[in-house]
Amino acid sequence: MRKIAVLYGGNSHQFRTLYEPKYHRYLHQIIYLPELPFTSLDDIDVLLIPSQLHQRLVSESQHIIDSFTDRGGVVAAFGAQPNNWIPGHNWEFRPTNFWWWLDSNVRSGLVTERLDHDFFCYLTLKDATWHYHGVFYPPSGAEILIGLEGGGAILYVDKVTTAGTLIMTTLDPEFHYGSYFMPATERFLDKFLPWLAEGEL
């Protein structure tokens, strides 16, 4: 099992998600964000960066994230990426449609052409289907596992931009699960963390 470290901003939704036993068992280390500059990532395989962290504090630790990918580490990030902490994502904001499932055609717009990827041995497209806060336009060579009809990526794996592996999704399941808001996001976490820990990335 890969050793996953996760950044923790001390907020209530991250507290609930990261200390939930069924998720906590996959987390080798929970790093309180203000302590990141004083924490070694030497024995860590995966750095998980949840959404809604204090932006200045993460920016001040940019060099730590860069060093981690430089030595081949895996960075997985949830949610909107208005900053360039992780290179190459080309985030584009989209207004959130919380009500997509009420529309007459009941289509989320999420698509995949990579059902052969090991990711889909763990998750289905339905497990990743709820609203999103924006899209990515990753570089060529990145594998888009979940895309949008009409272009853009909701979840991709990028092994070309850095010496490491970047797993980026605009979805923010840890926020919703931790806020008791949209229990459907629990299905994603139940399966994503085992893939991140043991699956073929």
Binding site: G9, G10, N11, S12, F15, Y32, L33, P34, Q52, H54, S179
Partner: peptide
């Protein structure tokens, strides 16, 4: 607000 660092 609801995003505050409660450890702090």
């Amino acid at each position: 607000d609801n995003f505050v660092d409660q450890e702090l």
